[in-house]
Structures are given as structure tokens and as C-alpha cells.
């Protein structure tokens, strides 16, 4: 701080605390809703302070019938599906982009730039703009209602390849020269030198991609018709629809809470990696 002004310092903290409270308020309301029973959640005004039904709601949501009157998979299964999808997407993206970035940076081969531009183009096309034809492709390949269908079409994206390319370009040439003098082949160089050097970048990217994968909405919604394949994030929509007939807000909000806990936990627990990943992939 440049000068000491007690009043300004006070205002600073006041604004920041109000900001934090404003940002956290929707989640607080969600938490409060998950701690009351159905009866209380149908009386206006809704509570602003937690009740004592948190564990009951948790148990009913996770293992019980869940939302009555809907044909849904149990929530624990949805959580598992989401986890599988998020892990497949993040590890798949990391593996294929590590490999292709390695090839593009460390080899000189015909069509190298052609491949590079082909990957580059994919940067520009979010899944939302080409849903119909992509859906047809996946349907023709018989990948509907499978983990492969959920993850593989989303694995193809250029951001990760780009990031690894930048990382590899900063690795000094001398390392490669000395490795070659010592008789190391390309694969040995990749596994023994490049991978250990880009360890933190991989971890940072993993954090970002895990959140990206977990939060997928439109794609799982389209390609899963079988209730046993639903993911937790897409199930919220069906619950909101059901809420118009039988408003069990305690169960809906408990599900919403369960859906946001894993990615939020990842951000808070691995904040440093998260910030690194976010700034590296977008710039």
C-alpha cells in the first residue's frame, strides 16, 4: 500500500467482504435448502438459516428414491458417471496432446504444418455449433450411451496441444543434444526428460480439464438416453422440470450441491495449479 489511510482500508475490506458475501449468497441458499425438509421448503418465505435435515436429505438423495415421481438413476451412480467422464476427458486430452505436440515440435516430417493447422482449426469450433452432424457421427459409430461416446468427441481440442507446444519450445536444445549424444532415442527422451520437465503443466492442465469435463451439459444430454448413463450435471434439468409438478426443493438443491462440490473442491484445494492452468491455456 502506498499511503496509510485507515478509512480507505476499512472501506476496502468492507467492499471485499460484501462482494464475497454477494458471490457466495446463491450457494448459501442452496446449502440452506438442503438442510430442511420438504414441508418447510414449501412455505414462503423460505429459510435463510440451516435446519437439521441435512443428513436425511443427503441419504435420501444419494441412496434413496431421490426425487419421487421421476425415473432417474440413483444419484451416486450419476456422480460415478460424471467422475468417469471427467477423468476420461481430462486424461485423454492430456495424452493425445502431449503426443502430438511432441511430434510437431521435435520432428521434421512431411505435412507437419498441415497437421498443425488441422489441429489449430479445431480451436475455433465449440461443440455447440456443430451438434447435429457430430451427433450423427457418434450415432453411426454406435457410441450412444457409452463412456466412449461421452468422452472421445470432446477429447479433440487444440488448447492442450497448444499449451504443450509452448512448454516444449521453452525446453533448451542442449538437453536434446546431450540426450542424443548419450544415445537416447525419441521415446526415451520423451519419457525421461520431457515428461518430468512438464509435470506441473500437466497437473495444472488436469485441474482445468477436470472441471471442463465434469461440467459438460449439452453433449451428455444428447447422447445418453439410457438413465443409467446420466451425469449429475445434466440431471439438474430434469429435476427442475419435475419441480413444476412436485416441488421437492430440498432434494433438488441437495443434488445441485453434490454436483458442484467436486469441481469446487478441486479449485480450492489446488488453487495454485488452477490459476496456472487457467492463465496458460487461455493466453
Amino acid at each position: 500500500m502506498v499511503e496509510n489511510r485507515p478509512l480507505t482500508t476499512f472501506v476496502t475490506h468492507l467492499v471485499l467482504i460484501l462482494g464475497v458475501l454477494a458471490i457466495a449468497f446463491p450457494v448459501w441458499i442452496t446449502f440452506v435448502a438442503s438442510t430442511h425438509n420438504e414441508l418447510r421448503m414449501n412455505q414462503s418465505p423460505l429459510p435463510l438459516w440451516p435446519g437439521e435435515y441435512f443428513l436425511t436429505n443427503m441419504q435420501q438423495t444419494l441412496f434413496g428414491s431421490g426425487l419421487s415421481g421421476t425415473e432417474q438413476a440413483p444419484v451416486w451412480l450419476m456422480l460415478l458417471n460424471s467422475l468417469a467422464m471427467a477423468l476420461l476427458i481430462s486424461s485423454g486430452k492430456i495424452v493425445i496432446s502431449l503426443l502430438s505436440a511432441f511430434a510437431i515440435v521435435y520432428f521434421k516430417f512431411p505435412f507437419r504444418m498441415g497437421f498443425f493447422w488441422m489441429i489449430f482449426i479445431t480451436l475455433m469450433l465449440p461443440v455447440e455449433v456443430r451438434i447435429l452432424p457430430t451427433f450423427e457421427v457418434v450415432a453411426n459409430l454406435g457410441m450412444l450411451n457409452s463412456y466412449w461416446g461421452l468422452s472421445i468427441p470432446l477429447i479433440a481440442s487444440a488448447t492442450a496441444t497448444f499449451m504443450f507446444r509452448q512448454v516444449f519450445l521453452t525446453v533448451p536444445d542442449e538437453l536434446l543434444e546431450s540426450a542424443r549424444i548419450d544415445g537416447a532415442g525419441p521415446l526415451r527422451f520423451f519419457f525421461d526428460i520431457l515428461l518430468p520437465l512438464s509435470r506441473t503443466n500437466i497437473a495444472a492442465l488436469f485441474v482445468i480439464l477436470f472441471i471442463f469435463g465434469w461440467n459438460q451439459y449439452l453433449w451428455p444430454l444428447l447422447i445418453t438416453t439410457d438413465t443409467s448413463m446420466t451425469t449429475i450435471v445434466m440431471s439438474i434439468k430434469q429435476m427442475l422440470e419435475a419441480a413444476e409438478q412436485s416441488p421437492q426443493w430440498n432434494i433438488i438443491m441437495t443434488t445441485a450441491l453434490l454436483a458442484m462440490i467436486p469441481p469446487v473442491f478441486v479449485v480450492i484445494a489446488m488453487q495454485k495449479l488452477f490459476v496456472q492452468g487457467l492463465t496458460e491455456t487461455d493466453k
Binding site: 495424452v95 493425445i96 496432446s97 503426443l99 502430438s100 511432441f102 511430434a103 510437431i104 515440435v105 521435435y106 520432428f107 521434421k108 516430417f109 512431411p110 507437419r112 497437421f115 488441422m118 489441429i119 482449426i121 479445431t122 469450433l125 456443430r130 457430430t134 457421427v137 457418434v138 459409430l141 472421445i152 468427441p153 477429447i155 479433440a156 496441444t161 516444449f168 519450445l169 536444445d173 536434446l176 543434444e177 542424443r180 525419441p186 521415446l187
Partner: peptide, 27 residues
């Protein structure tokens, strides 16, 4: 491209193959 690089072989094609295949089929 790195100033120093590995000689041309089949390997780089194998390395880019997964990414290119997915890009072609799904993008």
C-alpha cells in the same frame, strides 16, 4: 520447430495419429 530435432521416421506419424483421427472424425 526446434533447431535440433529427431530424424524423420514413422514415429511422428504414429504420435499425431490419435489427435488427427479424432479431429477428422469428430470435427
Amino acid at each position: 520447430l526446434k533447431r535440433v530435432h529427431f530424424p524423420t521416421s514413422l514415429l511422428p506419424y504414429l504420435l499425431v495419429a490419435p489427435q488427427i483421427a479424432i479431429t477428422l472424425v469428430f470435427f
